[in-house]
Amino acid sequence: MFYPNSPQTSPQLTQIPYGQQYAMMQRQIQQPYHPFATTEPQARLYPYHYQGPIQQEQGGFITQQSTAASPQYVQMRVTPVDQSIMSGYPNQTANGSSSSSFNYNIHPQQQQQQQQQQQQLRHHAMPVGSVPLQDDRYRKQLIVNYLAPDVTSTDLHELFSRFGELDGARIIYDKQTNMSKGYGFVYFCHAEDAKEAVERMSGYEFHGKWLKVGYSTNPLNIVPSNSSPYVHAGSRGAAG
C-alpha cells in the first residue's frame, strides 16, 4: 500500500523548493479562506456584503464582478436614472436638479381664491374633541361614552347635575331594538360647569363602566337656548 506522503511516492527534499517541504498533501497545500485577509477597505468593513468592485458596462447597466450573493443577503441591482424623465418638472436647472418651490404660472386672482378656499376649509374642519370658538353652545354640550346598558337618562342627569344647572341629558337608544347604544349627551347651562365635568368625570366608574367624557361637536345635538329642557323620564321611549 502506498500513501500520498510515503517515501516511495514523495520526491527528495532537495528537489522541493524551500517553504513547501512540509506541504505535501493536497489539504495542506490548499490555503484556508480568510474573509478579512484583503487589501480593499470595503471588504474589511463589510465582509458579507462586499463582492468586489463595481464596473460600468456598455448599455448603462451596473453589474458586479463577483458571483451571486448568499441567500441570506439580498443584493440590489441599481440602474442609472434617465434624465429625460425629470425634464417635465418646473424650475429645473441645466444640471438636472430642481428647486423646492414650484411655479405653475397661476393667475394671481386664482391663487388668492385657492388660498381663501383653504382658509375656509381649515375654519370649518374641526378635529374630534375640539371646541370651536365662534359658538358658545359647543362648550356646553358633552358626550358621555361607555355607558352601561342599564343607565337611563334620569341617572345621567343626576350624575352630572352636581356640577351645575343642566339644560338636559339623554341616552341614545336603538330604534329597532330599543336598547341603549352605550353613549349619551349632557347639556349644561354654563360653559364653566361643562369644563369642570369634563375634567372630573373622564375615567369615572359608573355602573361598572369607566366613562369617557368630552365635548360634543355635532351641531345636530345642540340644544337651542330658547327651547324647553328635555324630559328626564326613566322610560326608554321618552328618553330616546
Rank of each mutant, 00 (worst) to 15 (best):
residue 71 P to N: 07
residue 29 I to G: 09
residue 192 E to M: 05
residue 186 V to K: 01
residue 49 H to Q: 08
residue 34 H to M: 04
residue 232 H to N: 13
residue 80 P to K: 12
residue 167 D to H: 04
residue 92 Q to V: 06
residue 173 Y to I: 04
residue 2 F to H: 06
residue 79 T to Q: 06
residue 92 Q to F: 07
residue 98 S to F: 12
residue 94 A to Y: 11
residue 33 Y to T: 15
residue 238 A to S: 09
residue 171 I to F: 00
residue 128 V to K: 14
residue 120 Q to M: 11
residue 227 S to A: 08
residue 116 Q to E: 11
residue 126 M to Q: 11
residue 143 I to Y: 00
residue 56 Q to G: 11
residue 139 R to N: 05
residue 201 M to C: 09
residue 95 N to R: 12
residue 67 T to L: 06
residue 12 Q to P: 11
residue 98 S to E: 08
residue 201 M to N: 01
residue 76 M to N: 14
residue 143 I to A: 01
residue 216 S to F: 01
residue 106 I to A: 09
residue 29 I to W: 15
residue 150 D to T: 14
residue 15 Q to P: 10
residue 179 M to G: 05
residue 50 Y to G: 15
residue 161 S to L: 12
residue 146 Y to D: 01
residue 137 R to Y: 03
residue 68 A to I: 05
residue 105 N to E: 05
residue 160 F to D: 00
residue 21 Q to W: 04
residue 125 A to P: 05
residue 228 S to R: 05
residue 199 E to Y: 15
residue 11 P to L: 04
residue 71 P to Y: 04
residue 221 N to H: 13
residue 238 A to K: 03
residue 216 S to D: 00
residue 172 I to W: 00
residue 139 R to F: 15
residue 67 T to W: 03
residue 165 E to N: 14
residue 100 S to F: 06
residue 188 F to D: 02
residue 91 N to P: 08
residue 62 I to L: 11
residue 75 Q to I: 00
residue 36 F to G: 10
residue 214 G to W: 07
residue 168 G to Q: 01
residue 28 Q to N: 07
residue 99 S to W: 08
residue 21 Q to A: 06
residue 100 S to D: 07
residue 35 P to T: 11
residue 146 Y to S: 01
residue 195 K to Q: 12
residue 126 M to I: 14
residue 176 Q to K: 08
residue 142 L to G: 00
residue 232 H to M: 12
residue 116 Q to A: 08
residue 67 T to K: 15
residue 14 T to G: 10
residue 26 Q to I: 02
residue 33 Y to P: 12
residue 171 I to P: 02
residue 171 I to C: 06
residue 11 P to G: 06
residue 2 F to V: 15
residue 131 V to Y: 15
residue 40 E to G: 11
residue 179 M to F: 15
residue 210 W to L: 09
residue 126 M to T: 05
residue 108 P to I: 09
residue 73 Y to N: 15
residue 205 E to W: 15
residue 62 I to M: 06
residue 135 D to V: 03
residue 238 A to I: 14
residue 42 Q to E: 05
residue 55 Q to N: 09
residue 142 L to A: 01
residue 191 A to T: 13
residue 127 P to D: 10
residue 215 Y to P: 02
residue 57 E to G: 12
residue 146 Y to E: 01
residue 188 F to L: 01
residue 165 E to I: 13
residue 126 M to E: 07
residue 133 L to I: 12
residue 4 P to F: 02
residue 178 N to H: 13
residue 182 G to L: 04
residue 118 Q to C: 08
residue 107 H to L: 07
residue 31 Q to S: 09
residue 34 H to V: 07
residue 14 T to D: 07
residue 97 S to A: 06
residue 83 Q to D: 10
residue 170 R to M: 00
residue 3 Y to S: 10
residue 239 A to E: 08
residue 126 M to Y: 10
residue 213 V to P: 03
residue 228 S to D: 07
residue 222 I to F: 07
residue 227 S to V: 08
residue 110 Q to P: 08
residue 87 S to R: 14
residue 237 G to E: 03
residue 121 L to P: 10
residue 102 F to Q: 08
residue 93 T to Y: 12
residue 81 V to I: 05
residue 31 Q to L: 04
residue 116 Q to S: 09
residue 225 S to D: 05
residue 108 P to T: 09
residue 137 R to C: 09
residue 121 L to Y: 11
residue 142 L to Q: 00
residue 164 G to D: 00
residue 231 V to Y: 14
residue 131 V to P: 11
residue 202 S to P: 07
residue 55 Q to V: 06
residue 119 Q to S: 09
residue 72 Q to A: 12
residue 156 L to S: 00
residue 202 S to W: 12
residue 97 S to D: 06
residue 158 E to M: 13
residue 113 Q to V: 10
residue 187 Y to P: 00
residue 210 W to P: 00
residue 87 S to D: 06
residue 230 Y to H: 06
residue 166 L to S: 00
residue 217 T to D: 03
residue 117 Q to V: 06
residue 192 E to T: 11
residue 174 D to I: 02
residue 142 L to C: 14
residue 80 P to M: 13
residue 14 T to N: 09
residue 168 G to T: 01
residue 50 Y to R: 15
residue 29 I to L: 06
residue 238 A to Q: 05
residue 227 S to K: 11
residue 227 S to L: 13
residue 133 L to T: 08
residue 145 N to S: 02
residue 109 Q to M: 11
residue 44 R to T: 03
residue 77 R to C: 04
residue 213 V to F: 01
residue 57 E to Y: 08
residue 224 P to R: 06
residue 103 N to K: 12
residue 148 A to I: 01
residue 108 P to V: 11
residue 78 V to G: 15
residue 3 Y to G: 10
residue 39 T to K: 14
residue 55 Q to D: 06
residue 139 R to W: 08
residue 141 Q to F: 00
residue 56 Q to S: 07
residue 150 D to K: 15
residue 215 Y to D: 00
residue 222 I to P: 02
residue 125 A to M: 11
residue 63 T to M: 03
residue 157 H to I: 15
residue 57 E to N: 12
residue 221 N to R: 13
residue 103 N to Q: 07
residue 37 A to N: 13
residue 138 Y to I: 02
residue 111 Q to P: 06
residue 142 L to N: 00
residue 184 G to D: 01
residue 238 A to N: 04
residue 35 P to Q: 10
residue 53 P to H: 06
residue 134 Q to I: 11
residue 164 G to N: 00
residue 171 I to G: 00
residue 110 Q to V: 06
residue 212 K to N: 14
residue 173 Y to S: 07
residue 61 F to I: 11
residue 173 Y to F: 05
residue 147 L to Q: 01
residue 143 I to R: 01
residue 14 T to V: 06
residue 188 F to T: 00
residue 136 D to K: 03
residue 186 V to Y: 01
residue 25 M to H: 13
residue 10 S to A: 10
residue 36 F to V: 15
residue 212 K to T: 03
residue 119 Q to A: 13
residue 76 M to W: 08
residue 124 H to G: 07
residue 42 Q to P: 11
residue 152 T to S: 08
residue 93 T to D: 05
residue 181 K to T: 01
residue 148 A to S: 07
residue 183 Y to I: 00
residue 225 S to C: 15
residue 111 Q to G: 09
residue 161 S to N: 07
